[in-house]
Design a protein around this nucleic acid. Structure first.
Length: 852
RNA sequence: GCCGAUGUGGUGGAAUUGGUAGACACAACGGACUUAAAAUCCGUUGGCCUUUUGGCCGUGCGGGUUCAAGUCCCGCCGUCGGUACCA
């Protein structure tokens, strides 16, 4: 291929246009108050999920979403919007740190190299980013505001009445003690069992465990003192506010499931003199509780276990604690447990039931204790079967249901005063009864855990916290950013002591206080980058009021970012964390919308040519650099969009790239032809005459369809329409320049280099053409009149089968259509000898003659 | 197991949301140009039958609704993601 003559000299003009855009600042957009800002223009904010700048550089999956937003942004600009289209780097991350451990080089060096490579690659694709707003989460200026936001969390609590974040000072005014206040902070310290990975040298969030384990790292549970963020206080708002977002339903569902609200009740059971509270979503089945289960880690176990069961229980608890998570899930099918010998009293009927310990009950959810109703819960049923515990039916299944263990809604039986009630009514009644007797209360539980926010790594934002006399204090804003010191050796300490603890002179302050040595997780920087882009160089605030109001302003939508495109892998974590931070900043008055992202679109994964996921080990990774070298950036962009619907998973095909490359070649040759010497010169068919009706029709149909398709993100069909258009134009003996220009205008957002190049060539020869670049021109308007046809093709069916196609006047009446259809010879042949029962006429479409 | 996507030619995918299935590409085949090739241009291309005209079948499978179903309803099957004892 490289030896073959290129169909058009993309290798010379693509870099030239890229340079032109950079020099002219074509895609830089001013902020309120800056020169060139037009307050009357509507804004459009399209955001790409920013990449982690890995050492291997961009692969062809990255530019899929980036091209989509680029097309939309260029289109919106042509339609009179001020467009915010930024790019940056999620630059903290473990690979750079591991590189530092190996080489002793500061991770910043490696990170900067990778960023430079990514930036070069992105620029080579001609994206219309405003590079003046570029951010990297590792920049000291960025770290400063990440730490500032952490301090906002640290200095806030969630008001129970309003559910909103409020300043801690309100609690101080109410006279709460230091300890009481520390327990309410949105950023707080807790001793919790955490996921510690010895080979990574850090703890992981619950959400991260699976990912790292699948990469072969070991993760174990250990109790450690950690910083947590109180995301659970926002659980309900994080569920409720999903409703008004324009997100794929599947993603909303993932988030709802992750937060995992369940409605039920807490019920108190007596065990001797002690009380155990259980959580259940089915209080209506209380009469069917035949045993109780405590999690092995439950604090009461030790106290209640009877002497003769003590040995067995201790052994069981020990075996549970040494089981890895993996073993626990793999053994999930087989229930295990030990009877404690203790008896609990069922509060509804005073009956004694045995108390077991079993690892199918988790300490981390609800109260760590359950009442077991084997007749109506699959897990309890399985357990009861295995250990021969009685099963009492208390819910009658609807007619026809023969499940051995019925878990659905039915009618209460064997339940005293609940008998005959529907499941819903029984729940209400029993809850009222429990509350009246002070034996329990209505309770809502969430699966969502507080966010474990500290890591023991080096390459992350240090906490802006110091310790003095066993208390933590936020450092003063004026001391931000607090940067990590250089180290001689970046190796983890090998125990849960953070790497930063090695830097004694950094940790120990003159006044005797000690710096917090944990660092923040990678999620921190990505939680708020969309806001920083709006005012990326502001050193006074993380975002100015004015920039916030314009770029993230309400606009009638709950979210300020108009369009956010990225992969599904961030469906839960990143998007949930960012929404949480956003709500806190919203409550504190720093942001004016309750949500960050109004419309979310997930681009589908691009697979290798072999249909497998792209990976180094499979050797099927496609590097965009090669594609750009062989076919040019426009071809890559166009192919990424032509492959299929944006949200679908689809395999890469170099042949497909060649296809769109050939299309661009045909567009090139609409304008240029090669002379004897092989030099490009304007094509002789070009004319400044008026297009004929057929040409106008296809051109204006293309303008219309491409505009509509961009709005609905259906880029593949927009491209196919432009192919149709160029095929038609290519056939003309006399090719009107105006028609070519229209095609170039609508193709410009997709293939900006070649279209600008051809347009500037036409400008040279046709002085009537506007002097500005296509990028700065208005989107062309289509003329509806050109699209209407005098005569249309009418399909004629007999009994639903197509038998003929006839030409009729576009405005033919129903009766006329019917008559013409019946007059068709072919139709005659099919209805001959039959009686016409009915004729359906869909004007402009078809006639269906029903006959038998 | 549960949840969510998805299933259309040899391939990627179209189809105004009930109205001509296969647009646009890729691949393949044939032709033009060329000493030859590449590139380009022009044709053919869902399957089966038919010399043509034409006919029959066809959107994972089986039913249903309708004048009309890729599209709507019911029941299955396959593939790909996510999730996993959450009481």
């Amino acid at each position: 291929m490289s030896q073959r003559r290129k169909q058009f000299p993309f290798d010379t003009f693509e870099p030239r246009w890229q340079q032109h855009w950079e020099e002219e600042k074509t895609f830089s957009v001013p902020n309120p108050g800056e020169e060139g800002f037009d307050a009357d223009k509507p804004k459009y904010y399209a955001l790409d999920m920013f990449p982690y700048p890995s050492g291997s550089g961009l692969h062809v999956g990255h530019p899929e979403g980036y091209t989509a937003t680029d097309i939309i942004c260029r289109y919106k600009k042509m339609n009179g919007h001020q467009v915010l289209h930024p790019m940056g780097w999620d630059a903290f991350g473990l690979p750079a740190e591991q590189h530092a451990i190996k080489t002793g080089e500061h991770p910043r060096v490696n990170t900067e190299n990778n960023i430079n490579n990514f930036r070069r690659q992105l620029k080579s694709l001609g994206f219309a980013y405003d590079w003046e707003r570029e951010v990297a989460t590792t920049d000291p200026e960025y770290v400063k505001w990440t730490q500032w936001i952490f301090l906002q969390l640290y200095h806030s609590y969630c008001c129970e009445e309003t559910g909103q974040a409020r300043p801690i000072s309100e609690l101080e005014e109410k006279g709460l003690s230091r300890e009481e206040i520390d327990e309410k902070r949105l950023a707080f310290v807790a001793d919790t069992p955490v996921n510690w990975s010895p080979d990574l040298g850090t703890v992981l969030a619950n959400e991260e465990v699976e990912e790292w384990k699948s990469k072969g790292h070991t993760v174990e549970r250990r109790p450690l003192r950690q910083w947590m963020l109180r995301i659970t206080a926002f659980a309900q708002r994080l569920i409720d506010d999903l409703d008004d977002l324009d997100w794929p339903e599947g993603i909303k569902m993932l988030q709802r499931n992750w937060i995992g609200r369940s409605d039920g009740a807490e019920v108190q059971f007596k065990i001797g003199d002690d009380e155990v509270t259980v959580f259940t979503t089915r209080p209506d089945t209380l009469f069917g509780a035949t045993y109780m289960v405590l999690a092995p880690e439950h604090p009461l176990v030790e106290k209640i276990v009877t002497a003769d069961q003590k040995a067995a229980a201790e052994e069981y608890i020990k075996s549970c604690s040494t089981k890895s998570d993996l073993e626990r899930t793999e053994l999930a099918k087989d229930k295990t447990g030990v009877d404690t010998g203790a008896k609990a009293i069922n509060p509804v009927n005073g009956e004694e039931i045995p108390v077991w310990i079993a690892d199918y009950v988790m300490m981390g959810y609800g109260t760590g204790a359950i009442m077991a109703v084997p007749a109506h819960d699959d897990r309890d049923y399985e357990f009861a079967e295995k250990f021969d515990i009685p099963i009492i039916e208390v819910v009658q299944a609807p007619e026809g249901n023969e499940d051995k263990c019925f878990t659905g809604q039915g009618t209460a039986v064997n339940s005293d005063f609940l008998d005959g009630l529907s499941t819903a009514d029984a729940k209400e009644k029993i809850i009222a009864w429990l509350e009246e007797k002070s034996l329990g209360k209505r309770t809502i539980n969430y699966k969502l855990r507080d966010w474990l926010f500290s890591r023991q790594r080096y390459w992350g934002e240090p906490f802006p916290i110091v310790w003095r006399d066993g208390h933590h204090y936020g450092i003063d804003e004026s001391e931000l950013p607090l940067l990590a010191p250089e180290l001689d050796d970046y190796k983890p300490t090998g125990n849960p002591e953070p790497t930063l603890a090695k830097a004694a002179e950094w940790v120990e302050l003159d006044d005797g206080s000690i710096r917090e040595t944990n660092t923040m997780p990678q999620w921190a920087g990505s939680c708020w980058y969309y806001a920083r882009y709006c005012d990326a160089r502001n050193s006074e605030a993380f975002i100015s009021k004015e920039a916030e109001a314009y770029w993230l302003g309400a606009n009638g939508n709950p979210g300020g970012v108009d369009l956010y495109i990225g992969g599904t892998e961030h469906a839960v974590l990143h998007l949930l964390y960012a929404r949480f931070w956003h709500k806190v900043l919203f409550d504190l008055g720093h942001l004016s919308t309750p949500e960050p992202f109004h419309k979310l679109v997930n681009q589908g994964l691009i697979m290798g040519e072999d249909g497998q996921k792209m990976s180094k080990s499979r050797g099927n990774v496609v590097n965009p650099d090669e594609v750009v070298e062989q076919y040019g950036a426009d071809s890559l962009r166009l192919y990424e969009m032509f492959m299929g619907p944006l949200e679908q998973v689809k395999p890469w095909s170099m042949k497909g790239v060649e296809g769109v490359y050939r299309f661009l070649g045909r567009v090139w040759r609409l304008v240029y032809e090669a002379d004897q010497e092989g030099e490009w010169q304007l094509r002789s068919q070009l004319t400044d005459g008026e297009p004929d009706a057929a040409t106008n029709k296809v051109v204006h149909a293309t303008i219309k369809k491409v505009g509509e398709d961009i709005n609905s993100l259906a880029f593949n069909t927009a491209i196919s329409q432009m192919m149709v258009c160029s095929n038609e134009l290519g056939k003309l003996e006399q090719l009107p320049v105006s028609s070519v220009v229209s095609l170039l205008q609508v193709l410009n957002p997709f293939a900006p280099h070649i279209t600008e190049e051809l347009y500037s060539a036409l400008q040279g020869a046709y002085s009537d053409l506007p002097k500005s670049d296509l990028a700065n021109q208005d989107w062309p308007e289509y003329v509806e009149d050109y699209l209407v046809e005098d005569e249309i093709e009418l399909v004629v069916q007999v009994n639903g089968k197509v038998r003929d196609k006839i030409k009729v006047a576009a405005d033919a009446s129903k009766d006329e259509c019917e008559e013409l259809a019946k007059a068709s010879e072919k139709v005659q042949g099919h209805i001959d000898g039959l009686t016409v029962r009915k004729v359906i006429v869909v004007p402009g479409r078809l006639v269906n003659i029903v006959a038998n």
